[in-house]
Each structure stands twice: as structure tokens, then as C-alpha cells.
């Protein structure tokens, strides 16, 4: 599992890639929390781009819950976007789709959060960087 992040105006988009199984969940937590800390301290929302996530275990879902609680404690929105079909099913079966904000696309998530971030995201997409 690898994770990177991009900044679109005030929104941080974190992008994990691979399988978030029991072994990788710790790596996700270690990598994700500083990114979210950065987003929250900059008073910005965060989006987790899950397009590259093939599988997530219960331990990985727990990390998402910890991340969501940390962001909510600072009154900052957080969303998960672009779930692959299998991961979307795991979200539904675990009922995480009921307790986290889930969007079909990263753009759709950003659209609900920040107009400047949406403009930056669209500009990056137009330049082939999105």
C-alpha cells in the first residue's frame, strides 16, 4: 500500500493505492494522520481518493473511523471518494457508508466542500494533472 497527497486550494486529497489489509492498515494510519493534521491545521477539508484501493480490511476501516473522528473534532469535513466496486460492497456491509461521507468521484466530493478547490481541481484536470 502506498499513499500520496495533493493540495487543491484548501482541500487535501490523500490517495492510498493497493490493498489495505491488516498489515497495511498501520502504514495507512501513520501516513494519513499527518496529512489530515496538515489539512485540519490549515482549516481545510480532506478527501480520500480510493480509486486505487482494491481491498480494505476491518483494521483499515477502523483507521478511517479514527481519521474521521479526528477531523470532526476540529470541525473539518472529510470524505471518501471513488470506491472500487468490491470496496464499495465492504463499505455497505460494514455500514461504513452510513457513518462516513462517500462520493462517487473526487470531483463530486470537492464540489460539496470548496469552490476554490473545485476550480483548482478542474484546472489541474484540464492540464492533465488531476
Amino acid at each position: 500500500m502506498q499513499i500520496s497527497s495533493r493540495q487543491f486550494a484548501d482541500v487535501v486529497v490523500a490517495t492510498p493505492v493497493g490493498r489495505i489489509d491488516h498489515a497495511a492498515a498501520g502504514l495507512l494510519e501513520k501516513a494519513l494522520m499527518p496529512m489530515l493534521e496538515q489539512a485540519a491545521s490549515g482549516h481545510g477539508p480532506a478527501v480520500l481518493d480510493f480509486a486505487g484501493v482494491e481491498y480494505i480490511s476491518s483494521v483499515g476501516l477502523r483507521v478511517l473511523m479514527i481519521a474521521a473522528k479526528a477531523m470532526r473534532a476540529r470541525n473539518r469535513p472529510i470524505a471518501i471518494a471513488a470506491l472500487q466496486p468490491v470496496v464499495a460492497e465492504i463499505f455497505a456491509i460494514s455500514r461504513f457508508d452510513k457513518v462516513l461521507s462517500v462520493f462517487p468521484s473526487v470531483r463530486g466530493a470537492i464540489e460539496t466542500m470548496s469552490a476554490p478547490a473545485l476550480a483548482a481541481f478542474d484546472a489541474a484536470a484540464a492540464a492533465g494533472l488531476g
Binding site: H22, S58, L61, M65, I93, R95, F96, K98, V99
Partner: peptide
């Protein structure tokens, strides 16, 4: 409980979920 409940509003209530059951049994 559902996993979402077990790690949030019902954390520390001492019960588990179907998801964890599948994972532990598969492992």
C-alpha cells in the same frame, strides 16, 4: 453489531461484527 457501530458508538461495549468474524475465520 455492524463494524461501523462496533468501532464508533458501541466501541467498548464488548461485542463484535460479522466483518471481523469473516476475517478471523479466513485468517
Amino acid at each position: 453489531y455492524s463494524l461501523a457501530d462496533a468501532v464508533s458508538i458501541r466501541a467498548d461495549w464488548g461485542h463484535s461484527s460479522n466483518i471481523v468474524g469473516v476475517e478471523l475465520c479466513q485468517l
